[in-house]
Design a protein around this nucleic acid. Sequence first.
DNA 1: ATTTTAATGAGACTAATTAACAACAATATT
DNA 2: AATATTGTTGTTAATTAGTCTCATTAAAAT
Lengths: 145, 145
Amino acid sequence: MRLIEIACKERLKSILHNEGLRYTSQRQEIWNELLESKEHRDAEEIYYSLMNRGIQVSRATVYRTIDMLVKNNMIEKLDIGDGKARFEYNDKYKHHDHLICTACGKIVEFYSKNIDKYQREIAKKNKFELLHHSHHLFGICEDCQ
Amino acid sequence: MRLIEIACKERLKSILHNEGLRYTSQRQEIWNELLESKEHRDAEEIYYSLMNRGIQVSRATVYRTIDMLVKNNMIEKLDIGDGKARFEYNDKYKHHDHLICTACGKIVEFYSKNIDKYQREIAKKNKFELLHHSHHLFGICEDCQ
DNA sequence: ATTTTAATGAGACTAATTAACAACAATATT
DNA sequence: AATATTGTTGTTAATTAGTCTCATTAAAAT
Ligand SMILES: [Zn+2]
Ligand SMILES: [Zn+2]
Ligand SMILES: [Zn+2]
Ligand SMILES: [Zn+2]
């Protein structure tokens, strides 16, 4: 096990502890699944991936655990409007938004300091306390053009 | 009937004609419903609003008509991530994005020329042909703070 | 007016999620 | 250690938003 994995394991443990929740094998496995592949994954995918690796966790537990991880800022929810939510490891120092190809579904990440700045200005001007945002650019990727 | 309503009625008629579709009473009513209140409305709301006014239109027709209106750029779809799509009259000269209060659900509109510019730059840099975007700022509005 | 063809309504169906609940497991209390 | 309490799980049922099918109805074309 690499150092980063140990660090993440401890992070899960400490968050569960703080919340008065228990460190269970199911929660470990789901958290691992989300850590190992940092891509944009949906609940069903995580469920089947665990199944395929012979790890029996119920669908409900997958949903519940994902929910708990989102609430504790361990993962971020991504809704690209196709009816199912995707999740990805939330690296605080690498916040990003998404470019989505409407032809092939490819997801590319982007970040713009400038946009970030303007967002904050807009929130301020409208007297909103900004909590988070969702910003998707939809288009056709190079391969699909 | 005000001039603007007549203009909009003609707009619907002409679009239906161009597409080889029929100008039905149901389509008129749904289009009216979306025009009269330019707020952010979901399909179910439109369906019940028509029902309450004694206008019998089926759920399927509401969904189908909304779909047709979106495809013809008469209305815009807005997905704020709460599981249901909202729609609003698409005034080409007043494109805007949204600030959403996570406490009371209030939706405030904003537009930033600068953000628009950076979006186009990002798409270009990633060799995406930009089609549309979705940009929501979530936070707590002044009243809810 | 008749024919052609698109549109509608009713309800079955789907996918993603959520809730209810009983059984089980981990802690806390005595 | 025994018992009570509380958290977690899997199963199943429910919900929600939206889609699909198909017999019937209504525009539009002739
Ligand atoms: Zn593509
Ligand atoms: Zn991402
Ligand atoms: Zn509010
Ligand atoms: Zn709006």
